[in-house]
Computed example of a mutant assay.
Amino acid sequence: MSAADADTVLFIPGLWIHSDSWAPWAALYEKAGYTAIVEGWPGQAATPAETRRNPAPLDGVGLEAITEHYARLILQLPAVPVVIGHSFGGVVAQKLLARGLASRAVAVDPGPIKGVTKLPFAQIRSALPVVKSKKNRSTTVALTRKQFRFGFGNALPKSESDALFSRWAIPGPGRPLFEATEAKKTDKSPAQIDTRLADRGPLLIIGGGKDHTVPEVVTRQEFELYDTPAITDYKVFADRGHSLVFDSNWKQIADYTLSWVAAHRVNA
């Protein structure tokens, strides 16, 4: 597979959100001349409603299984794509970039990788529906409307948060959250990424200043873990929460990434 610049962009959703939420981004990138691929996590059904009715295929799915799912997809492409991921999808995007399976990557409000030590109260509260019970490691957990409001929609009017919950929220596997919280004491953690690679493609990390699920102090520390001459950029949207890629102001974020992706074209 060629590592030359590709005109394909792969979008990876985060925990608790159906991949169809990327549809506006895919349309924007396709209008700009890219081929867009929107692909859900392994076990996610074709629609949010179907996933809610039968979330069992997502039980126990962790970061390695998710990463390998996308790696297999990428290996079928003629060239490595741009990879854009949100939340834990942002962790997977970084893992794929480190493996040479992305020409460049954008990690929006990415979940914590190994080495991140910041743990704000808002993040603890957002993760509590999962980590409060060890049995959730092997099953799926659905957020309530109120929990979604705190973790995703806190920077939005309540009416918009509720509408997004009804449209996009799905049960998600608990395992990635346990893997992230246990990373510090786990050898070869699936949340571990080589942040010293010099020969990988460009990386952009985006933080939301009002994010509760992955507070901006966490994304900033994640960025600071990178000690490499490879291009690693950081951007904060101060007034945005964890819903920033699929709420009514999604285009603000998408336009920024579109310009960054174009500016960091990788040549053959």
Rank of each mutant, 00 (worst) to 15 (best):
V83E: 11
F178P: 05
A169Y: 04
G40M: 08
P190H: 06
T195C: 10
A268P: 08
N267Y: 05
T47E: 11
L197P: 02
T35E: 15
R53W: 04
N54K: 04
V218M: 15
V38E: 06
L225Y: 08
A127I: 06
P215E: 00
V130F: 09
G14T: 04
H86C: 08
T139G: 03
N249V: 05
T213M: 13
G43W: 09
R196T: 11
K158A: 15
K188V: 01
Y226Q: 01
I170T: 14
H18W: 12
E216F: 05
D5S: 11
R104W: 05
N54P: 03
P112V: 01
G111D: 05
A163T: 05
K118C: 09
A23K: 13
R72I: 00
I231H: 11
D20V: 14
I253Q: 08
E68T: 15
S126G: 05
P171R: 10
A45F: 12
P129Y: 09
R53I: 00
V217W: 06
S19M: 12
P157N: 13
A155F: 02
P110R: 08
L73N: 10
E50F: 04
I12S: 07
Y234L: 02
W250F: 14
R99E: 14
H212T: 02
V141A: 03
A23E: 12
G62H: 10
Y29W: 11
I84H: 14
E30Q: 14
P57E: 01
L258I: 02
L258E: 07
D5W: 04
